[in-house]
C-alpha cells in the first residue's frame, strides 16, 4: 500500500485528508495546487477529501522565487 507524492513513494495512511497529507509532508507553503490522479482538489475541500490508496498526488507549489 502506498501513494506517490510529486513522483516520490510515500506511505499511505488510512482516512488521511489532503490537509493532513500536506502537514505530514511539511508542505507549509499556502499557495499549493493539489491534484489527485490528475484531478484538481479545490482548496475548500482539503479538509474533507480523503487521499485514496495507490493514488498519484501532485502538490504544485505556486512560488515564483528570485
Amino acid at each position: 500500500m502506498g501513494i506517490e507524492v510529486n513522483g516520490r513513494k510515500v506511505e499511505w495512511v488510512k482516512n488521511e485528508t489532503v490537509k493532513y497529507l500536506l502537514r505530514r509532508m511539511r508542505y507549509t507553503f499556502p499557495l499549493v495546487v493539489v491534484k489527485i490522479n490528475d484531478k484538481i482538489i479545490p482548496r475548500k475541500d482539503f479538509s474533507d477529501v480523503i487521499v485514496p490508496d495507490n493514488s498519484k498526488v501532485a502538490v504544485i507549489h505556486m512560488i515564483s522565487g528570485g
Binding site: 510529486n6 502538490v59 512560488i63 522565487g65
Partner: peptide, 18 residues
C-alpha cells in the same frame, strides 16, 4: 545570480523536472 533561472521548487519540491 538567480536572475537566469530559479528552479528550486520546480525541481526539489514539485519534482517536475526529474
Amino acid at each position: 545570480q538567480h536572475d537566469e533561472a530559479w528552479l528550486i521548487f520546480m525541481d526539489m519540491v514539485n519534482n517536475a523536472i526529474p
